[in-house]
């Protein structure tokens, strides 16, 4: 137990840093992809709606671990080789984007049709309505669902070790292999994940309060 914080402290920290980076990159990527997908899904153009829908239905139904293996070891067979961090991030963005899209769409649905009609009547086009009316309100009303997406991404980042990205879980596994600490090392890692999740939930609650849409 003690050697975990003396001998292996640097490794633990490096793992935590990798988990943080991977989660941050994947979450930001998910927000971008999810927003675009949501715009597709509510657009007036039928083929775009279909594409958005197909994307969401496809990726909320694939386990991340299959996605990781397909992106990492499947794509090189068709001539596309990313480095491993990118592979992990791409997989997690594809998955996270689909869930983000659905969260944002819930927020969009919460905006009353009257507002959209009003926006159209003063001459805003589709993008104008999205940018000035729909998305600002949608984001504010789905802060907590987005926090859930964030926590989902954080926890699923523990699978990145499968393709050799040295995140917290893989580091712990390697430390465990050298020092045979049994469950102790995993408990420490679990504790770290819980702390980050709780912090995210707390930050989400604060933001939600501050950004609440007055109706």
């Amino acid at each position: 137990m003690q050697e975990l914080f003396t001998t292996y402290f640097a490794e633990l920290l490096a793992g935590l840093w990798m988990t943080a980076r991977l989660t941050a990159v994947s979450f930001l990527g998910s927000l971008v992809v999810g927003t675009i997908a949501a715009a597709f899904r509510i657009s007036p153009i039928v083929p775009l709606r279909a594409v958005g829908r197909l994307y969401v239905e496809l990726f909320v139904n694939i386990p991340l671990i299959s996605l990781l293996v397909i992106v990492t070891f499947g794509l090189p067979d068709v001539g596309v080789t990313f480095d491993l961090f990118t592979c992990a991030a791409v997989s997690m963005v594809l998955l996270g984007g689909a869930f983000t899209c659905e969260a944002i769409r819930t927020g969009v649905n919460a905006v009353s049709v009257g507002q959209i009609e009003a926006a159209r009547s003063i001459g805003l086009d589709f993008f104008g309505v999205l940018r000035h009316v729909l998305f600002p309100q949608a984001y504010r009303s789905v802060v907590q669902p987005l926090v859930n997406v964030f926590i989902g991404i954080l926890l699923s980042s523990s699978l990145a070790g499968v393709i050799g990205v040295k995140d917290l879980t893989l580091q712990v596994s390697e430390i465990n292999n050298q020092a045979a600490l049994g469950l102790t090392a995993y408990m420490i890692a679990a504790f770290a994940y819980v702390i980050i999740s709780l912090l995210a939930g707390w930050a989400g609650a604060r933001l939600e309060k501050r950004w609440r849409v007055q109706r």
Binding site: F73, G164, E174, N177
Partner: peptide
């Protein structure tokens, strides 16, 4: 392999190698 004695072995016999771990033999 990530959880094997290979990691420590490479550190000792090939310290200048860039070690990349995967979780199992097929990968």
């Amino acid at each position: 392999q990530a959880a094997s004695t290979g990691v420590a072995l490479l550190q000792k016999y090939a310290p200048k190698a860039n070690v990349q771990t995967f979780d199992d033999n097929p990968k």
